[in-house]
Simulated scan of single mutants.
Amino acid sequence: MKFYSRREVSKILFTGGAAMSAFPHLAFNKNEKMIERKIPSSSKTLPIVGLGTWQSFDAGADVELREQLATVLKEMHNKGGQVIDSSPMYGSSEEVVGDLTSKLDFQESFFYATKVWTTGRKAGMEQINSSMQRMGRKSMDLLQIHNLVDWRTHLSTLKNMKESGSITYWGITHYSDSAHSKLAEIIKKEKPDFAQFNFSMAERRAEQFLLKTAQDNGTAVIINRPFAGGSLFRSVKGKELPTWAKELDIYSWAQFFLKYILGNEAVTCAIPGTSKPHHVIDNMGAGFGRLPNEKERKKMLVTLSNL
């Protein structure tokens, strides 16, 4: 099976017509809907692929980049993605998300998530209010404690905000394997609506206990670092996809990596970050078609390790 680099994906997108038949996952059936999973603490569901904004949406006053990011949001929406995850830690990302989405007719179709990343109750509330303003939100779908910074202080703040209706859900986050035990401890005791943490084919510690802990305690899971900071793409550079990947509706390495994650039913949504329209289309493709079962996921791991 031919491997398509992300540069080739871009060329195919802009060539259109017959070229699209060579890359079928880009030509989504408009009647097909992205797979969704339930948020355990409510009756609502979320599409299983969303968008992270770390670095990618830190556009500042760059007009050209902002136009490109607006296209990313439009393509994400066209393919059924909803979750946009940001943080005050991410430079101008919150402001850029707020500005760009405010100009879209489908602004309210997104699921907005951000974080509190400071110490102290007063500073936390000030930062949360600033994030709401930057993202143009009167209420936030999901507010998370970023990297567990002063989590005990912010915990009561977020619970009170949920009770008052200022936020719909609250959660906790981290990006490192070293925090998994602490995340599991908090999940068991406090039952957050969401937990966000790292998990990929290159960083699999979450499979040891954290994913099951979240599932057993009714906590939705958002996965960050699904490509292990890009190292997974470097490991397969120039390599072809296995011929059987098409059986799982996988047409790129990005989808290979994402579908491995999404094959775990404890995962609610993965949030690969990108600033490029053709990348977001590719990523969203992982939310369609078949997902691998446990036997197939093991086969995917063996295939990757043998490259």
Rank of each mutant, 00 (worst) to 15 (best):
V9P: 00
V9L: 07
G17V: 03
S21K: 11
P24A: 02
H25P: 03
F28T: 13
N31W: 06
I39M: 02
S41T: 15
S42P: 05
S43K: 12
L46R: 03
P47C: 04
S56C: 06
K74A: 12
S87F: 06
S92N: 07
E94S: 14
K103Y: 14
E108H: 14
S109E: 15
Y112M: 15
T114C: 09
R121L: 13
Q127P: 05
M135Y: 04
G136A: 12
H146F: 07
N147K: 08
L148M: 15
D150L: 05
D150R: 04
N160V: 11
M161Q: 14
I167N: 08
S176Y: 15
S181R: 13
E190H: 14
E190P: 06
K191I: 06
F199L: 08
M201E: 05
T213V: 11
N224F: 05
F227L: 07
R234W: 10
K237I: 11
K237P: 06
G238C: 13
K246M: 06
S252V: 06
I261P: 01
I261Y: 02
T268M: 05
I271G: 03
S275R: 12
S275L: 06
K276A: 05
V280E: 01
V280R: 01
N283V: 00
N283M: 01
F288W: 08
G289N: 00
K295N: 12
R297H: 01
R297P: 00
K298H: 08
K298L: 10
K299D: 11
L304M: 08
